[in-house]
Amino acid sequence: MIARRSWTDAIPHLVLILGVAVFAFPIYVALVGSTWDAGTIGRGRLPLVPGPDGWANYDQALFGDRGGRISYVPVSQMMWNSFVMAMVITVGKIVISLLSAYAVAFFRFPGRMVFFWMIFITLMLPVEVRIVPTFEVISDLGMVNTFAGLTVPLIASATATLLFRQFFLTIPDELVEAAKIDGAGPMRFFFDVVLPLSRTNIAALFVILFIYGWNQYLWPLLVTSTREMETIVIGITKMLGTSDAQTDWNLIMATTILALLPPVAVVIAMMRTFVKGLVDGDK
């Protein structure tokens, strides 16, 4: 047992409380901002306590443009777009990574290492370094302003494939042998043994990838140009416009809160799985 002195014990509490406050403060201000009218905020007199207009602000942001200074796409539509994008990316990444990791780990075939390296190399080619040519491919394929264009180019995943492959290599040989003796084919083995064993890994990846998908910025900015396809994160910055005092700050703050709610909820609900998955998976 390490000797404890009461005054040194207080330091960690102080530092951590300060830290938590620094992290919570911007969110608190945004929450307060989303409950006052645009005029109060525009005059630069935002109080530190919630105001009376919260209900009206969220209603207006979510469902329509009744009386706003500029008309927006309803945020409920943006949230739906973000949700579809996040879910397709998440499920897509998990499915195709499971399949390709299974192929690389459980079979031996000509070209195995070539494919493995081809997948690995995508780690070095984030969308940010090939903006223009990737956009050209999408527009040649007629995928601009579609959910397919928004999601398919992002569902290749080297990290998820490497993670699953690593895990598959730890599945005991005896299990495979037993399955073979019992006459189970590779797909039966995949669905009855490998998939159930991968449950924890899949859950952790789900959290990480859902956040990744929901928070995409550059790609939706390039691939969507119609307002109906806007995701919520892009929608907020479009609302900012010139961001002067005349901006509808109350609606922007309500939208900001709505944009951060789903991913934060997922993290909080699955905190343990997520932390373990993140640390074990190294990204």
């Binding site: 195709i96 990574s97 780990a105 494939t161 040989d173």
Partner: peptide, 26 residues
């Protein structure tokens, strides 16, 4: 792995989605 399945075509089918996306978009 020491013990593996010996299908010839299946692994290519399993790899197809990932490799297709990688080739076309990366």
């Amino acid at each position: 792995r020491r013990v593996i399945f010996d299908d010839k075509l299946l692994p290519y089918l399993l790899l197809f989605p990932q490799v297709a996306v990688t080739l076309v978009f990366f």
